[in-house]
Design a protein around this nucleic acid. Structure first.
Length: 282
DNA sequence: TGGTATGTTCCAAA
DNA sequence: TTTTGGAACATACC
């Protein structure tokens, strides 16, 4: 369930019920997910008031009074649920009890999620790359990320230390909208391609947020971004831009979807028939 | 039964 | 040194 738009949707859905509340108790049913350990987290958060609920990359950030933070990463199957009377939540891995009696459940079928307690937020998020919907994500910033390396474009876009928030789905959708093949070398993009890619990333993420994320299986309900997918999960279907069949390939162990005509392996030729200008490497 | 899964990390190999 | 491949984490679904 979790890429930037889904995480942002979770933040927005829970913010109002969390802000201003104090954490009365914390319980972990799978301690391996808690960092540095359950006792430290409990010691650090119990009695603290939640002052803000935000997002950094794919991390949910609870800012507590006294300078403490709880970061939650949903990984593949994590989710938040409010305890309901009578209804049994499945795969409950941790419970935050609040001072108003409500209990926030961290549920996670695959147990890949992480709950991190820290007093140094910037140190904990220091390795994360640029925030994609922030002003810092300029064309120069993207250029820097792509042209300082010679990696295949898709795995680079998925690298959270370079760029924070894209996952498998939104990367495929961004590359399709930009007309860039996922195997293109990151330092081979023209200025025009780079500008298209940046615009596509931001547009796709914003649409994802507007649609409350994508709901593609039992993990995350409520979103509608899956209705706007152009390539993800559509192998064999006709591209709605050109009619070519969408194909599925493997890139860096991830299922990858693309339109071979809209996303050629070689850069597009200009209207004059010349090859697009190559950028010099740094 | 086997293959796949919206993520990340670690190690080995190229 | 940089980049890539594979395994691991653990479970559910088709």
């Amino acid at each position: 369930m979790p890429e930037l738009p889904e995480v942002e949707s979770v933040v927005r859905a829970h913010r109002d019920k969390l802000i201003g509340r104090r954490i009365a108790a914390f319980e972990s049913l799978w301690p391996r997910q808690v960092s540095p350990d359950v006792a430290s987290l409990r010691e650090g958060v119990c009695g603290r008031r939640i002052e803000a609920v935000s997002r950094r990359g794919k991390f949910i950030v609870l800012s507590l009074d006294g300078g403490a933070f709880v970061l939650v990463h949903l990984r593949m199957s994590g989710r938040f649920e409010w305890e309901e009377n009578g209804a049994e939540a499945s795969h409950v891995r941790a419970i935050f009890s609040l001072d108003d009696g409500r209990r926030l459940l961290f549920c996670d079928a695959r147990k890949f999620g992480r709950i991190i307690y820290t007093r140094d937020l910037s140190a904990t998020t220091a390795r994360l790359g640029v925030e994609l919907l922030s002003r810092a994500f300029t064309p120069e910033c993207l250029s820097d990320v792509l042209r300082r390396r010679a990696r295949r474009i898709k795995p680079l876009l998925l690298d959270q230390t370079q760029i924070a928030g894209l996952g498998n789905i939104y990367t495929d959708e961004s590359l399709f909208r930009a007309g860039i093949h996922p195997l293109r070398r990151s330092d081979s993009l023209s200025d025009a391609e780079l500008a298209r890619l940046r615009a596509a990333i931001r547009a796709v993420l914003r649409e994802g947020i507007r649609r409350n994320g994508a709901s593609i299986d039992w993990v995350y309900p409520g979103g509608s971004m899956q209705e706007a997918f152009r390539v993800y999960g559509r192998a064999g279907e006709a591209c709605d831009a050109c009619g070519e069949r969408i194909v599925s390939i493997r890139v860096g162990q991830r299922g990858t979807h693309l339109c071979p005509r809209c996303q050629p392996r070689q850069p597009r030729r200009t209207p004059r028939g010349r090859l697009s200008t190559r950028r010099r490497r740094r």
